[in-house]
Design a protein around this nucleic acid. Sequence first.
RNA 1: CGCGAAGUAGAGCAGCGGUAGCUCGUUGGGCUCAUAACCCAAAGGUCGGGAGUUCGAUCCUCCCCUUCGCAACCA
Length: 727
Amino acid sequence: MNQPKRYLITSALPYANGLKHVGHLAGAYIPADIYVRYLRAQKRDVVFVCGSDEHGTAIPIQAKKEGTTPQAIIDKYHEAMKQDFEDLDISFDIYHRTSSPLHHETASEFFTKLNDAGELETKETEQYFDEEASTFLADRYIKGTCPNCGSDRAFGDQCETCGRTLSPDELINPVSTLSGKVPVKKKTTHWYLPLGKHEQFLRDWILEQHKDDWRATVTGQCKAWIDGGLQSRAVTRDLDWGVKVPVQGADGKVLYVWFDAPIGYISATKQWAADNGKDWKPYWEDKDTKLVHFVGKDNIVFHCIIFPVMLKLHGNILPENVPANEFLNLEGDKMSTSRNWKLDMRDYINDFVKKPAGPNGENGGGQMVDALRYYLTAIAPETKDSEFTWKGFQTAYRSELTDIFGNFVNRTFVLMHKLCSGKVPKLHMDILDDNDKLLIADIEGTKAEVQSALEHYRFRDALFQVIDLARKGNQYMQKKEPWIKAKLATSNGPESVEAQKSIDNCLHLCLQLTANLAVLINPFLPSTARKMLYMMKVVEKMLDWENAGKINLLSVGYSLREPQLLFRKIEEEEITAQIEKLKNGLVKETASNKDTIAGGQASGGGVQLNQLTTEPVNKPQIQYDDFAKLELKAGTVTACVKVPKADKLLQLEVDLGTEKRTIVSGIAQHYTPEEMLGKQVIVVTNLAPRKMKGIESQGMILTAEDNNGKLQLLKPENPVSPGSNVS
RNA sequence: CGCGAAGUAGAGCAGCGGUAGCUCGUUGGGCUCAUAACCCAAAGGUCGGGAGUUCGAUCCUCCCCUUCGCAACCA
C-alpha cells in the first residue's frame, strides 16, 4: 500500500450527558491516541479530532433530571470530559463540540446538499402531539399500557417491566409524561435517508474490498445489518434541541442526533484548520487522506454503514478502517451507568493521578496515567469482550511494566553509574560476541514487529513486543553478568582489561536498548518516555520513530543522570480500597427506586420525568387459579455451600420430605452457609429449573427485603415437617 | 426465533490442516547489579460436545450446548 499523504483520525464523540468510564477509554480513545502518537513520531501529516456530542433527546431529559437547562448540562459535561481526556494524555488536536455555531452551519450545509441533490426522501406520518405543551412527543415521553405484559408503566420506546421494545403506536392508553394529558395524533413531515438504495455499494465496499483488512467483528456486524434489510432512516425529528432543519417551514424540527453527530468530525476539523491556518478540505476530500474511525462496537453500524453513505453522497472520502473494539467488563459484570457499576475516568484521575499516594506520598502523576494506559491496552477488547479487574490491574502493572520494563531501565542505570562512572561506555567491536549480536538483532526486529502490529491496529500485541524487548534485555544482562566481571576488573593484569571491555559492551548495549525502549514505548506511555529522556539527558527529537532500531542513540562518553524509578509500587490497600468503593457504590434496583419515589414527591409531581427510572409496580390483579399454579412447600436446608466466583449465590440442598433438591439462591450477601444449615425455608417447587454459574437450580427460596435492603428468609413460625404444603 | 462474534493449561490470550504456544500464577533451582526485583527449569490442556471430510483436524463442513452482542441513559 502506498503511504497516504495525510491522516485524519477520529475517536467516537462522547455523549455530553455524563462522565465517561474506562470502558470508553479503552474502546475508542487510548487506541486512537496510540495510533496518532505513532504517526506523529513518524512525522506524518495527521490530525486527531474529537468533541462532545451535545444533541438528542437525552440531553433535555438529563437537564430535567438535574433540574437545570440543556445548555448547562452540555457545558458541564463538555468541560469535564475535555479535562479528563487531557488528564489522561489523550492528545486530540482539537476537542470540539456539536453545539458550536460552526457545527450547526456544517451540519446544515451537509443536509442541504443531500436534500438538494434529491438523495433524501420525505414522508408524512402521524405522531403523538401534546397540545398543552404544544410539542411532538419523543417516544420516551409517552407512557401507557404495555400490549405485551399489561404493565401500565410502559414507555413509547420500551416497556420497563417486560423489557419489550415498543413503538408509541402499540401503547394502550398513551399519556404524555410532559402534561399528563392524552396526546393526539398529528401529521408531521420528516426527511429520510434511504439506505436501501446503497445496498450494492455497501456490499462491494465492506464485504468485498475490506473483507480482509477490517476486523471480523466489524464486517460480521455489517453483514448482519445489510442482510437484515436496509430501511430508510429518519434524518429529522420534532424536537427543539439540536441543529434546526434548514428548510422553510420546518419549524420545530431538528436533525436527528445520529445524523449531525458524525458530521461533528468534519466541523471539528474545520475549527482545527481555522485555528492553525490550515486548509481542512483535503482531509475530507482528497483520496490520499487516510480516514480512520476509532469506536466501540455499539457504534459500528453508524461508522461503517450510515455515515459512509452520507459521506459518499456528500462527495467526501470514506473511512479506510473502523477498528472497533468490543466491550470491557468490570470485575465480572457489565459496566452499567444506572447500577453505578463502572470506573469513571474522573474517579481514577482523582484517586491515582491527582491524589498524592504511594509509599513516599509522592504524586501519582504521569506514571499513574501510564499505568492505566498500560493495563487498558494490555487487556484491550480487540477481538472479544475483556475484563478489567483491580487485581489484574495491579498484577499487570507490577509484574510486566514495573518488574520487567522499569526494573531493566533502573538496573542498567545503576550498573552504569557503578561500573562505568556514569558515562556511556564504549562499544568494543573486537570482542563483540553472539549475545551482543543477538540483542542488536532483537532491537531491530522489535521495531519491525511493533510497527507492523500498529499499522494493523493490533495494539495489545504491539505493546507486548515492547515489553518483551525489555525482557530480552534482562536475559541479555543475565548472560553477560557485568557484576561478576566487575570483580575481575579490579585486579591487575590482562583479564582486568578484558573484563572492563565486556562490562562496557554490556552496558553500552543496555543503554542503547533503553533509548530504544523510550522511542518504542512513547506512543503507549508518553509520560514514561519523557521521564526516560530526562534521565538520558536527550531532547524530545530522539523519540522520532526513525530512531527506533538504531544502536547509536546515546553518544559514547556522554554522562547521564542518576536513575529515578519509572514506576512506583501500587500497594495492596489501594487495590482493596477500590474494590470496596466499587461494591459499596453499587446501586441496587430497590435503592434507586426509593430515591425515585422520594424525588417525585419532592418535586410536587409537576415534572414527572424523574419517573423515567424504574419504579415499583403494582402488578395486575390475579384470580385464585393463577395463584394455584404455584406449588409452595416448606423444606429444611440440609447442606449449603458458597458458589465459587459468584458473590451473591449460595448452593443449597433442601429436604422436601419426599426428595432433596439442589437450589441456587442469591442470598450469599445476607446469609452465610453455616447460618443456613438446618433452617426451614419456603420453596417454590414447580418453578422451571434454571442454570446459574453452571449449577442447575431446581426451585426458588422465598425472601422479603427489609428497609436496609437486607433479605429476610420467609419461614414457618414454628417448625413443620419437610414437604408441608404452603397455601 | 434469526443473525454476528466467541468457547484452547488455574487466569488472560495467540495459533488455524501435519510433534499444542505466549504472558501471569504455581513449584523447584540460580543470581545478587536492580523497585521482595532479574534469570533458568518443571508441572499443568483428550484445544465446548457430537458426527463428517481428509492419509491426518484445535484449525474445514454439519448438528448441538454455553457466553456476549445485534435492542436499553452505556465504548
